[in-house]
């Protein structure tokens, strides 16, 4: 649904140059919720703003719903933007218009006749549960309600794609949860494709099917959330299951084991201990529900250096687990 190829965007100003997006390839499938994560300044907003050409990239290709955006003329681009909804961290509502007036705004921009507009506004307000607040001004409603107005407004042109830049960052956890639930529900009902930016792991955990992590303008990791969590060395896994810094004592092997689904139900720790007659220490762990399956991570400690534990590690891998060995002092890194 969204195809981004070799995208590059450099900001130039007063002799300084900053490449905010540096050769990004990204592919978002139809109907999926795709999250982009990364530190402040990584280039997430710039990337997102390139998708509807609010920022014009220096190089690359952007295709949304099969249309090459960079090939469009000014008028064609405005028409294309009407088919791409966008929601904003600070909502971007007109303070001089009521809730209904704000939702009507994109319809006016599109030239929808007045009579049709009113009916469509009612429909949209119903969709986000704001019918009762139609006559209120933005200053009179809560942050969560403002974002619902933002969402209703973004959906006015019946878009196939919804872009979201930190849409829940200004909201408290409870409101965030309700907005995320609404986004997922809308995706299911309207078949939307959602590209969202967030710095909250919780957002990824709750609604994203796929994710990418950006650093210094590049995508360093991307794939389905499940793939990323099971991939050894994944930053996403490390951030989602924060385990304390590994303190590997000499003569021991510290292993992070990631498991999902049925593997989570099998007692692999006791099976390991029994099979090899060893003591297994559990150092930490967490289990999370991600995209309908349970994925967990456990940090365990085995006696003996990693090279003495080859059979034990193989045993874990055979059980369908993802195994990551921490390098111990004085030992070469073993995979």
């Amino acid at each position: 649904m969204i195809q981004i190829e070799k995208l590059r965007k450099t900001y130039r100003g007063r002799g300084r140059e900053l490449t905010a997006v540096d050769g990004v390839d990204l592919s978002v499938r139809e109907g999926e919720i795709f999250g982009v994560l990364g530190r402040s300044g990584a280039g997430k907003s710039t990337l997102l703003r390139c998708v509807n050409l609010l920022e014009r990239p220096d190089e690359g290709r952007i295709e949304v719903a099969g249309r090459d955006l960079l090939a469009l003329s000014g008028g064609e681009l405005r028409a294309a933007r009407q088919g791409i909804g966008m929601i904003h961290q600070h909502f971007g509502l007109l303070s001089s218009r009521t809730v209904a007036g704000n939702v009507a705004f994109p319809l006016e921009v599109m030239g929808v006749p007045r009579a049709e507009r009113a009916a469509r506004v009612d429909e949209l307000l119903d969709l986000v549960g704001l019918t009762e607040h139609a006559g209120a001004y933005p200053a009179q409603i809560s942050g969560g309600q403002k974002q619902r107005v933002g969402i209703a407004r973004a959906l006015a042109g019946r878009p196939k794609v919804l872009l979201s830049d930190e849409a829940t960052s200004a909201l408290d956890p409870e409101t965030t949860a309700s907005i995320l639930a609404l986004l997922r529900d809308l995706r299911d009902r309207l078949g939307l494709t959602v590209l969202l930016i967030t710095h909250e792991m919780d957002v990824v955990k709750r609604i994203c099917d796929s994710a990418a992590i950006m650093r210094d303008g590049r995508v360093v990791e991307s794939g389905t959330v499940r793939e990323l969590l099971l991939r050894p060395g994944s930053e996403l896994a490390r951030d989602l299951f924060p385990l304390p810094a590994a303190d590997v004592r000499p003569g021991t092997t510290v292993v992070d084991v990631t498991f999902e689904g049925d593997a989570a139900d099998r007692p692999f720790v006791s099976s390991l201990a029994r099979t090899y007659a060893i003591d297994v220490n559990i150092l930490g762990g967490a289990v999370e529900e991600v995209g309908g399956t349970r994925i967990g991570r456990l940090r365990i400690e085995l006696p003996g250096d990693p090279d003495l534990n080859a059979a034990q590690l193989a045993h874990l891998r055979e059980a369908g687990l993802t195994v990551e060995v921490h390098p111990s002092p004085g030992t070469e890194v073993a995979a």
Binding site: L54, R78, A79, M86, H88, L94, P106, E108, V109, A156
Partner: peptide, 29 residues
């Protein structure tokens, strides 16, 4: 006038004339 609102109007595909009239002048009334 909140630049975020102008930005949102651009994202909706509003023309410059629409932004000047319906966003800038209206919000600044």
């Amino acid at each position: 006038v909140d630049p975020g609102v102008v930005d949102a109007a651009h994202a909706m595909g509003a023309s410059r004339v629409q932004i000047a009239g319906k966003v800038l002048l209206r919000e600044a009334r």
